[in-house]
């Protein structure tokens, strides 16, 4: 087991270096000089040169790449072009907010989709199953934006059940603003997730061991809840772990529409204002988180599945 974890950790290093380098290349093919953009239209040559030096743009490419890695390791990404704040502070502030939105939504939507997925897999082929699947396919054929717009318009604007938008950093005060976004978030996640879980459950239901369990005299529910669930939980659990970084990243669209100052909102504003350092650091950090959680997911997989032989 130890050797496996070490091997997996060692394997993550070239992946991390390669991925960050790929991002580095991508960000450096951008036409236009960031220093020019930052200095403004009427800057003198000297001013531009000073800014270039400050940003490390006069270094050779490997020096610039090294700076990017250093930023990641020291968790110091410099300052935003737009707000002039330290990016690290902006990210830390946004992460808590995004988590307040993402985590409850994640827990609720996962519970609902697992439960519904299990029930419709159990009654596969029934009217209930067909109805739920049809509804979820149809629901997915409408743009996410439409749901957000409609939810905001009807539930908040027309019916006045919730605030239309806004946020309160206070831990108690924030929830009145978060209820509607969470509801919409859950609604958007359940449709695709429950089909995913249904497929996993059905794949297991057709395995030979299910027939054995039934031939022992176990009832349908015992077969499903004991035998099938434990097998299905392996792919489900590892899949859930991978989605955790996206919780912190938050729902970009929902945050933007409801003006919740999370990481998603940060990204949208950075796009609108062409704030490259923020976008780059968010991308690098997001990728880093994704690699780490992938690693955790792999190790978890090896731990929970007895078939994985660790040599």
């Amino acid at each position: 087991m130890f050797a496996y974890i070490v091997r997996r950790l060692l394997y993550a290093i070239p992946i991390l270096l390669g991925t960050t380098f790929l991002l580095f290349l991508l960000f450096n093919v951008v036409p236009g000089d960031p220093a020019l953009q930052l200095a403004g239209k009427h800057a003198t040559r000297e001013v531009i040169e000073t800014i270039r030096a400050e940003l490390g743009l006069n270094k050779p490419w490997y020096g610039q790449y090294f700076d990017m890695l250093k930023q990641l390791i020291t968790f110091d990404f410099g300052r935003s072009y737009w707000t002039k704040q330290k990016i690290t502070d902006m990210i830390l502030a946004g992460a808590g907010t995004s988590f307040s939105l993402g985590f409850p939504a994640f827990v609720i939507s996962t519970s609902i989709s697992l439960l519904v997925g299990l029930v419709i897999a159990l009654y596969r082929g029934s009217k209930l199953d067909k109805g739920v699947v049809a509804f979820s396919v149809a629901a997915q054929s409408v743009s996410l934006l439409v749901y957000i717009l409609a939810g905001q318009y009807f539930l908040a604007y027309k019916m006045g059940l919730f605030p239309i938008s806004g946020y309160d950093p206070d831990f108690i005060g924030r929830w009145q603003y978060l209820v509607l976004p969470i509801i919409i978030f859950v609604f958007l996640s359940v449709a695709p997730e429950l089909r995913f879980y249904r497929t996993i459950f059905l794949d297991e239901l057709y395995q030979d061991y299910v027939r054995t369990a039934r031939s022992k005299g176990l009832g349908t529910k015992a077969v499903l809840l004991r035998h099938v669930l434990k097998n299905a939980m392996i792919p489900i659990l590892t899949n859930l772990v991978i989605t955790i970084p996206f919780l912190i990243l938050g729902s970009v669209l929902i945050e933007s529409f409801f003006q919740i100052p999370g990481l998603g909102d940060l990204i949208v504003k950075a796009i609108a204002n062409n704030d490259r350092p923020v976008l780059i650091s968010m991308t690098v950090l997001g990728t880093f988180a994704y690699i780490i959680f992938n690693l955790i997911s792999d190790i978890l997989y090896a731990l929970v599945d007895p078939r994985v032989q660790l040599k």
């Binding site: 030979d208 061991y209 027939r211 039934r214 022992k216 176990l218 097998n231 078939r307």
Partner: peptide, 26 residues
């Protein structure tokens, strides 16, 4: 429900594929 009391108790069965007939995670 009555049939379940018979399966595995009064009538039991073994299958052709021993490789896949057992639950891999128990």
């Amino acid at each position: 429900a009555e049939m379940r009391k018979i399966r595995g108790n009064k009538i039991s069965m073994i299958f052709q594929e021993p490789m896949t007939s057992l639950n891999p995670v128990f």
